[in-house]
């Protein structure tokens, strides 16, 4: 018998603690496959966030550091500058990256740090129990917005990818989704490119992955996927917001 699939070597044997339907498991696997395919396991470093992915360091079989809430891009900066042959990626959720860590992500992008950032956007604080995130949609119910996010009180969601794409030193910004097989294949391509850019020394690369959180949305995985496709994609359109890496390669 031939094995047609197996656990990527960049994943440990630790069992994921993620809830059924959660996108983290999918994105962890994609990232691990990319690490294997690019043969960077012996120089990759994962910066684990605070939030549901706090134990990413237990799951990726690479060097790891777990940092304070939102500071991943600053920690990644320190590692990359101190050991430039490392391949450093910061893995963050939307509370971590778009709220408490907004300064760190913006300035890492503005400095053009040669790091990779994977940003899971599921519009909610997961680990702490479903509070409103900066990415929560208007009208979406959260434990700190029980009547739904009110535009007049809580403003509008932040579109991080579009915002970072404004920065000259950010080299590659793409938003993908983990909702379907075709989109997952596209997500993997984007993650691979974001790592390849770092290997090639091209600069700051950022992949936002739309993801579901059935547990804190109070729904089933299938209904969650419908919400992602109908509501989230309307607010957060998929696509490449910036890619100047090809031009860089040609020395332009």
């Amino acid at each position: 018998m031939n094995a047609i699939t197996k656990r990527p070597s960049a994943l440990t044997e630790a069992q994921f603690h993620y809830c059924p339907g959660c996108g983290h498991s999918v994105v962890h696997r994609l990232t691990a496959e990319v690490i294997d395919e690019l043969n960077i396991k012996d120089r990759a470093v994962v910066v684990a966030p605070v939030g549901c992915a706090v134990f990413a360091d237990k799951y990726f079989d690479v060097d790891s550091i777990q940092g304070p809430h939102g500071r991943g891009p600053a920690i990644a900066t320190g590692i990359k500058r101190a050991k430039p042959d490392s391949i450093v990626f910061s893995y963050q959720g939307d509370g971590d990256l778009a709220s408490i860590g907004m300064a760190e992500i913006v300035h890492a992008a503005a400095r053009g740090e040669n790091i990779t950032v994977i940003f899971i956007n599921n519009t909610i604080y997961g680990m702490t129990g479903g509070q409103m995130a900066p990415t929560t949609l208007v009208g979406q119910v959260a434990t700190t917005a029980p009547k739904g996010r009110n535009e007049k009180l809580q403003g509008n969601p932040i579109n991080v990818s579009e915002m970072l794409a404004q920065l000259k030193s950010a080299k590659y910004i793409e938003r993908v989704s983990s909702d379907s097989a075709p989109n997952i294949i596209k997500a993997k391509k984007a993650i691979k490119k974001a790592f390849q850019n770092q290997i090639d020394g091209l600069g700051f690369s950022f992949v936002e992955v739309l993801s579901i959180c059935p547990t804190n949305w109070g729904t089933t995985p299938l209904k969650g996927l419908d919400f992602l496709r109908e509501k989230m994609m309307a607010q957060y359109p998929l696509g490449v917001f910036k890619d100047v890496t090809a031009a860089n390669k040609e020395g332009k």
């Binding site: 304070p68 500071r71 600053a74 920690i75 320190g78 590692i79 101190a82 050991k83 300064a103 760190e104």
Partner: peptide, 25 residues
Amino acid sequence: AFVQAESEVSAVNMLYGAAATGVRA
């Protein structure tokens, strides 16, 4: 390496990352 950080909070977290690599930081 020298980095002018965006804040004291970022600076100390850069230090956290660099110190973790074993360099004198």
